[in-house]
Each structure stands twice: as C-alpha cells, then as structure tokens.
Design a protein around this nucleic acid. Structure first.
Lengths: 300, 300
DNA sequence: ATGGATCATAAAGAACCTTTATGGTCATGA
DNA sequence: TCATGACCATAAAGGTTCTTTATGATCCAT
C-alpha cells in the first residue's frame, strides 16, 4: 500500500516551487500540470497582495517576501508530513515492510518469506515492490533490498548476493534456434532487454556482449520489457534469450523450464544489498539476519 | 482594510477544532457551518485512515494520533499566519494604523488627525474603527485607543482622557419636554442608550441614574442604538436625552446643537487609553505624543 | 530564423466545499 | 419519564475551486 502525501493544498505547491526554483519542475514533482501550479501561486499572491516570485525564462526565484513565507511553509510541510508519517507508521501496527524491486520480490523474496513467517508467526511482513525506487517508498520501509554497487548505499548495508548473470532461454527456443556454442552465437539471436528510464545499475546485454568482445546491431527480433517478470515470461514463451540473475532464475533452471546458454558473468561489487532503516526494531533485525542466512545457503 | 486570514484549507479548521474541543465552536470561530467542519475533519481522517478525535456529546477530544498531527498543524498555522502578517505589514509601507471605536474615531480623532498630517505630511495615517474590538484587528494596529479601566490595559498604556459624562439633548427637545432642573427629572424623559453585546465598559444610563439615587422603569420612548454616532444623531434629531462624553460632544456643545441638561459624572480611572503596539516605530511614537498633547489641550 | 524552455491565461469539466435539511445520541432539568 | 438543548453525522444541492488542454508570450541558445 503506497500512501499519497497528505493533501495540504497550495502549501505543498508553494514549497515545491520555492525549493526547485521552477513552476515547471514543481509541477513535475507533484504530478500536476504547469498551469495548475501557476494558478495556485497566483491565488496566494492575490490573497497577500504581493509578488512571491521573480519570474524569468530561467525559472522563478523567491522574492524577499516570498522568502519570508517560504521559510514558514517549508517548515510546516516538513512538520506535517513528518506527523502524518508517524501516524501512518503507528497505525500499521507490528509489521515489517521490505522495499525492493519487482524482480527480486517475485523470484527470490516471496518464495522464501513464507518460511520466515512460519518461524515467526506473530510478525507480519509486507513486501513493497516498486519499479521506480522512489525515495518516499523506501523511507516508509523498515528495510530495503536494492540493486547497486557498494557506493550506492550507506555504511550499514550488507551485500545479500553479488551479481552473477547467465544467458538463459527456454529449451524449445534452444532446440529451434540453437545451439549457441560460442558467446558470439548469441549475437545472432533475438535478445530480451530489461529497460529502465534512467541509467541501469544492473548488467545489460550491451555490457555482457562488450565484455565478450562482441559487437552487435539490435535485430528486429529483440524485445524490450520494463519489468523483470515480463522478461522471464517472454523467455519462457520462447521469445528470445534473457539475462538470468542467479538467485532469481534458480527455480526455473532447476526445473528445466529455462536453460543456460552461455558463460556466467560476475560483478562482485554489484548485487542486491540489504539496507536497514535507521529506526528498525528487533523483529526487523531478526528478519534481516534470516535473509542473510538464506542468501548464504542459496549460494552454496 | 481588514485582511481575512490566509486560506490554508483544512489546517485552520483542524487547528480550531483541536484548540476548542468542539466542531460546533470551531465552525462558529471560522464562520462556517458545523457540517462543513465535520466534512473537513472526516476527509483528513480518511486520508490518514485514523481517527483524530474522540467524538462525544460534550465535544470532540483529540485522540493520541490527533495530538501528534495537532502539534504539527497548530505550530504551522501560527507560523504561516505570522509570516502572512509580516508580509502584509511590510507591504503597507510607512503608515500608522490606529485602532479605536466608532465613537472616538468619528467625534474626536478624525476632526483632529488632519492637524497631525499637516505637521507630518510624509506619514500616512490609517484609522481602523471597529465596534467589536476583536483581537486580530488590534494586533494589526500600531496603536490602539480603547475605552476601559486601568486594569484593562498593559503597563505602557496612557490615559488619554478620563471619563466625564454629561446628559445632553437638542435645544428643541429641551424646549418641548423640559426643563430638567433636577436629575430626577431626566427619569421622566425618553433616554437614548448605547448598547453592546457584552458588559459595557462605559457609563450607562442605569449607572448614571443609580449614582443619583434615581430608580426608573424603562419607558416606551427609550431608544437603543448600537453605535455612538447613531446615539448622537438621535439626540440631534430631538429623539431623547443621550449621555455625552466630554471630548466627543465638545463641538456640538460649543456650537449649541446640543445642550447639557444635568450634572457631569466623572470616573477618573475609566476613560480612553492610548495603547502602543510593542513593535511601533518612531513615527508612531511622534503621533502618540501628539495625541496626548491634543487631549491635554482639549481638557483645559 | 528556429527550436526549446519557462511562465501566463482562457475555457471546460471534474472535484471539492459549502449550505440547508435532517437525523441520531446523550445529558440535563422539570 | 419526557422534553429540550447540545453535539456530531450524513445527504443533496449548488457554488467555488482546481485541474486539464489549448494556446500564447518571452527569452535564450543554436
């Protein structure tokens, strides 16, 4: 369950414009259109009968009077949001929230969390999966399991599993389009890409191919998908070859619904990290220890 | 010009309910209907998915979670209102605002303030007259001239003029219904009363009569009016006998449009007090000194 | 000269907020 | 026991606010 921020009307809008120095960027942050933000700022200025911003093509800078109001509003927004956050936290009761991406949630975490709940039946576990890894979702969680490099995380984060990637496909696809005896053979086949809006932290096909000295033009048969679940689903449906992260595709490899068709690439500094929340309790600590133990056993 | 509070939506409503412990009383304070307040509180509770108040017949008490939000909201409302107040104050420019009642404004202050402005042409003076003497209007002023006793005002207040009251009427009324040679004679005449919703701080006809040992039943001819301007207007229109405050009726007495028809009663501890604002500037100090001087000269 | 970025306004429609009307509940006093 | 007054809740209707899309103005960089 994702909470939307408490609706505090123009206060949040004014705060965003003051912070970002731009009506357009504030609109983007708040999920509004730019004229909606312009309208709200104008309304406040009418009530006070002053100009709160110096407008220009480069954006909107707070005026002197705007600074006076901004200080009060900014502190208010933070304070009220903090109170709302505390209220929602307390209202949830003794539950642990784990924040992670869809792929990890579906292929690694959910299959295992039932074991933890058998061991700790009084602890309620909520898995909050997201694609965009927004700060607010993570801030709401007791622990986060995120993909990245060492430098992407605070001191207390533990590496749950390093990144080990192997090309995989369905046996039927292999029978029809294979064999793929050399890494270069993969360049001829349709590949399944996990896409993201920003720069991906995970290994991509282009990086995999470059590490094997293979250059390749994207073929017409390639597919781009925006969740890892879709990627694996497409691979199972014999649509092409996917990159398989060890830990996520273990079950499909074990039952033979997917087969490895190339060498494994390991990036020891990259992987899934377990990031604790500063205010997590003892139940969360128990869950985190259990997760680390599970990951170690899975890696044997 | 009276400023309405900045519209901050449910925050002001929630704050009022939290402070007053009653949706109904919050509605009254905010000039809304009770269902409007009920609706707004429900909306916040829906967004947070918690109960913020314990409702009962005796009113609504903040719940534990309600207290958490109330602390944040109350501080925010005060902070934002303070910022708005500062902004409006700065936006007004170098003007002095004097807050007083209608009677004093009309009969004593406005006739004189032109002299002050001749002496200080660069100083803009605003007279803010009100009947209800609400705290917010006074707080916005640089100085206030208010009627009352010593104990009603802070240390720095100066007595501008003590209360000296004389019964007055129009000469035509005297010719028709007089003469009034003894105070007891006034009890037979229609009297003009200045009314107010609360307990009046000024001398009333019933007090005046009591001080002269006169008991009187209200006659059919009595008139009650809710501003002193109306009282004097009714007296000039030969409608009855009014109480005349020295300082306010001087001009009418001097030109003979009103005549004294009884002894003067003085209450030295009561009168108009000059109450400074804590943050008044040097121009305001000059005006206040001038006002005190004018009052002293008028009393000679 | 052109394109991209920012802000502003108008119009239309959706959502919100207010009112009145009304009902439920409880405490108090007769 | 009953009537009354106080408080809060909800529905419906209508007014107001807020959002969108469409569009325009301005300025800067290419």
């Amino acid at each position: 369950m994702i909470h939307r921020p408490l609706d505090i009307g123009w206060l949040r809008i004014f705060d965003a414009v003051g912070r970002l120095g731009s009506l357009t960027r504030a609109a983007q942050e708040l999920g509004l259109s730019q004229p909606a933000v312009s309208y709200q700022i104008r309304r406040i200025e009418e009530q006070l009968d002053v100009c709160l911003f110096h407008r220009s093509q480069g954006g909107s800078r707070l005026s002197e009077t705007g600074e006076v109001l901004f200080r009060a509003v900014h502190a208010s927004v933070k304070s009220i949001d903090g109170a709302a956050h505390d209220i929602r936290r307390k209202a949830r009761g003794p539950a642990i929230r784990i924040f992670t991406d869809y792929g990890f949630a579906a292929f690694w975490l959910m299959p295992r969390v039932a074991d933890f709940r058998r061991l700790h039946p009084q602890v309620e576990v909520h898995i909050v999966a997201s694609q965009s890894l927004e700060d607010e979702l993570e801030r709401d969680a007791d622990a986060a399991i995120l993909f990245g490099a060492r430098d992407d995380f605070p001191e207390g984060a533990r590496l749950l599993m390093p990144e080990r990637v192997v090309p995989v496909c369905a046996p039927g696809f292999l029978a029809r389009s294979g064999p793929f005896e050399e890494p270069a053979d993969l360049a001829e086949a349709p590949l399944l890409h996990l896409e993201t809006s920003g720069k991906p932290r995970w290994l991509t096909w282009s990086t995999w191919l470059a590490e094997h000295g293979i250059s390749r033009q994207p073929t017409q048969g390639d597919l781009g998908l925006n969740t890892y679940g879709f990627v694996i689903q497409a691979a199972l449906a014999e649509q092409g070859i996917a990159l398989g992260w060890m830990g996520l595709v273990d079950q499909d490899l074990a039952r033979g619904s997917l087969v490895a068709v190339g060498p494994t690439v390991t990036r020891a500094d990259c992987g899934y990290w377990l990031v604790p929340s500063p205010s997590a309790g003892s139940a969360t600590a128990a869950l985190m220890d259990w997760l680390v133990n599970e990951a170690e056993e899975a890696a044997l």
